[in-house]
Amino acid sequence: MIIAITSVLAIAIIAFILTIRPRDLPAAEPESPFAHLDDRKAAIYENLRDLQFEYRVGKLSDTDYQNTKKDLQKELATVLAEVDRLKAQLAGKPAVAAPAPAPKPKAERAAETKPIVFVCPSCGATFEKSLKFCGECGKSMKAASA
């Protein structure tokens, strides 16, 4: 009895492993050649968002904020250029720096219900306290108002 059961088990296992029909192959998810660049781009946006948040809550000094923001933007531009280069290469065209489709963050924007205290002259963002540089657009708030 045991012998019969074990043989059936062994045969079943071997059959399961070895008989694969074409329709059993899982359709692979499409893999974009841009996947790693898109990830990188997303990471940089994420970093920028963090940076703005930290600046707004007052963890960062103005110079730190400005410098780091510039760095991140530079990196972002590099990645976008790399996307274009790869795209041109894939399309079999000579590498020209064609503009890339713009990334579209779909983050919702919170309704601004706070009484307005300080307004950025460049982009209109509002803050509860005085900042040297706008936490939204990064332009100088003082210079424009002066």
Binding site: A35, V83, K87, K104
Partner: peptide, 14 residues
């Protein structure tokens, strides 16, 4: 909650 999603790069001609 706020998981920002970005349009992945689409490729024309590939």
């Amino acid at each position: 909650k706020v998981k920002m999603q970005y349009a992945r790069t689409s490729v024309v001609g590939v």
